[in-house]
Design a protein around this nucleic acid. Structure first.
Length: 584
RNA sequence: GCUGCCGUAGUUCAAUGGAUAGAACGGAGGUUUCCUAAACCUUAAAUGUAGGUUCGAUUCCUACCGGUGGCACCA
């Protein structure tokens, strides 16, 4: 039984003994860590909450409960005190912390994991870039958040599967291909050769998309031509169009694969929109007959507002018979259900899709209620410029790979003076750059926007990814020194020691609790916030205390503590999808 | 117009309804014969406005103000 369960059980027993109706579920008993360490390791406000119903003085009730809790001699609890208006504070024993430190060393890279979600199957869909369009920094955001949530859930014992849904169908493809064909026709540019570097071919597609989008909005003739081309692509009967379509798609997917590798994501499933489009139509047709969908102006629509006034009408099949994003979403989700049958199906997108998802999920609820029930849409904020929204339609975007490359260059200048060879520097620069970017995304709650500014968004100091890496690397170099000087880490504690369990030890042992919370709330920023606090405590301690000294009897313990810090930092960073370089 | 989300130091972010609102950057001042100064130490600085619920509100409710997203054939 863990310490929190022991405390909560004891609190419930004490309440009952005091003649107060105690909550049946332990989760209703709230334990917190006081901000001020002199208030103990755990505190509960149960006396404040229960006092009113019982019509007693909260301070008296707290005193009564504390006396009972004291008398109960809870394992690992040193003493119980009351404070303020009726707080009950618990102080843990030295032995508790020493045993936890031993657990860290013993469990190593498994420390922080649990079996809380064993047996559950969870599917996470994220990143979702579209072939023929750029992989922009919004996709970077979805990837960082999705990857971290996947790792967090897996750390709690669930079987996690990752899915990437890529939009290879739809108007954006027609716009891009139209511009490519148009350029050839008017001889203003030609399609790059196969031998051209991939980056050049991708840039070509991006500029075609921007050109096609402008034409679609400004030129009615072009709009008509693009709509017709969209139909041709969907029908798949025009050989020339098919050939160009397949080529562009291949380039895009190849390009995305390079980025996933750099970011450290491995998908279990790739689903293309073209694979679910026909299923989507079939579903909509079937439920059109059953009355879920209706015809309107030649299109097939779902009147969301008929089910919930907060919802609105959306088109599922347009008047040309082509399925929209909505119909494809239904095809995708029924496919997920058949293929993976998850207990929980998580979809991560930008929050501009919130209202869209509410409508589509309502439709799914009427079609496949079990699947709708298991599905959870998590949205993240937008990466935006101070001046406004980023849009690939206008070409006003920052691509994922250019951002990584720019940050890498900056990191290289900082590594210049280090005594490392070029390959080592290059490898470290890539790891550090990805860490800096991912951390800047994961440090805050996923729902809020990030206003992007290269100079301030990607930080190397203070509350940043590189700070965490630097701390982990520094801890490693202390461990290396200990090894070379023959100081072996040893967790030992004698009653006669004058040392005290410090803030560093107290913070270290809270890691599993933080991970559990981050996993259940699907909120990676809890891990990020925790790691910064831990790193800061370690750095402060490091600056004050010499760790490695052969003639210091306390040295083996301090080396062991350093090792525990290194383990927890590395494990936490891994949950954020961040690797630690050997040196930096 | 209807509707969703968000307003915390100069700036970017934290804070399961609890004790003195916590960091980072930037500002001011300091630390390197010693394990990586991408570090450390000291210091000034904040809950949009008005009500309400509560023993207790940054957190919940209402209104207003400001920002941002969505609202029919894009994704």
């Amino acid at each position: 039984m863990d310490i929190e369960t022991r405390l909560k059980t004891a609190i419930r027993d004490a309440l009952r003994a005091a003649g107060i109706t105690a909550p049946e579920s332990l989760s209703a008993i709230v334990l917190e860590h006081p901000d001020d360490p002199t208030h103990g390791d755990f505190a509960t406000t149960i006396a404040l909450v229960a006092a009113k119903a019982a019509r007693v003085n909260p301070r008296e009730l707290a005193g009564k409960l504390a006396a009972a809790l004291s008398a109960a001699h809870i394992e690992s609890v040193d003493r119980v005190e009351t404070a303020g208006p009726g707080f009950i504070n618990f102080y843990l024993t030295t032995g508790y912390f020493i045993r936890e430190l031993e657990t860290i060393e013993k469990r190593g890279d498994l420390y922080g994991n649990s079996n809380e979600q064993r047996g559950r199957r969870v599917l996470v869909e994220y990143t979702d870039p579209n072939p023929f369009k750029e992989f922009h920094i919004g996709h970077l955001m979805s990837n960082a958040i999705g990857e971290s949530i996947a790792r967090l859930i897996a750390s709690q014992g669930a079987k996690v599967r990752r899915m990437c849904y890529q939009g290879d169908f739809g108007l954006h493809v027609a716009k891009t291909l139209w511009a490519a064909l148009h350029r050839e026709a008017v001889a203003t540019g030609s399609i790059p050769a196969k031998r051209a570097p991939l980056a050049e071919r991708i840039a070509f597609l991006g500029s075609c998309y921007a050109e096609g989008s402008r034409a679609y909005e400004d030129d009615p003739a072009a709009k008509q031509a693009i709509d017709e081309l969209n139909k041709k692509i969907f029908d798949g009967k025009d050989r020339a169009v098919n050939k160009l379509y397949k080529l562009g798609k291949k380039w895009s997917l190849q390009h995305f694969e390079e980025i996933y590798a750099k970011l450290g994501t491995k998908f279990d499933y790739y689903v293309l929109e073209s694979e679910v489009a026909h299923d989507g139509i079939a579903i909509v047709d079937e439920f059109l007959e059953k009355g879920v969908f209706e015809r309107s102006d030649g299109a097939v629509v779902f009147h969301g507002e008929k089910h919930d006034p907060k919802l609105h009408t959306r088109v599922f099949i347009n008047s040309q018979g082509i399925p929209t994003y909505e119909a494809k979403e239904l095809g995708l989700n029924t496919k997920k259900w058949k293929k993976v049958h998850p207990d929980e199906s998580i979809i991560i997108t930008a929050n501009e899709q919130n209202d869209y998802f509410r409508v589509v999920m309502k439709a799914l609820e009427l079609i496949l209620p079990e699947a709708a029930k298991a599905t959870k849409h998590i949205s993240h904020g937008m990466l935006r410029f101070a001046e406004g929204k980023m849009s690939s339609r206008t070409g006003n975007v920052i691509t994922g790979e250019s951002l990584i490359a720019d940050v890498e260059k900056l990191v290289q200048t900082k590594l210049a003076l280090r005594d490392m060879d070029d390959d080592e520097k290059k490898e470290a620069a890539e790891i550090i750059a990805v860490a800096a970017i991912k951390y800047s995304i994961l440090r805050q709650a996923t729902s809020s926007d990030i206003v992007y500014d290269f100079d301030t968004s990607i930080s190397f100091e203070g509350d940043s990814g590189p700070y965490l890496l630097y701390t982990a690397v520094r801890a490693q170099s202390v461990l290396d020194k200990a090894k070379s000087e023959g100081v072996k880490p040893k967790i030992e504690w004698k009653v006669t020691d004058k040392r005290e369990i410090g803030l560093l030890e107290r913070e270290l042992v809270r890691f599993p609790e933080v991970v559990a919370r981050a996993a259940s709330e699907k909120a990676p920023h809890h891990v990020a916030t925790y790691l910064i606090g831990l790193a800061s405590l370690f750095n402060g301690w490091y600056a004050r205390v010499p760790i490695v000294a052969a003639d210091d009897p306390g040295s083996p313990y301090k080396v062991a503590l350093t090792q525990a810090v290194r383990i927890v930092l590395a494990n936490g960073l891994k949950l954020l999808g961040i690797k630690v370089p050997d040196r930096m």
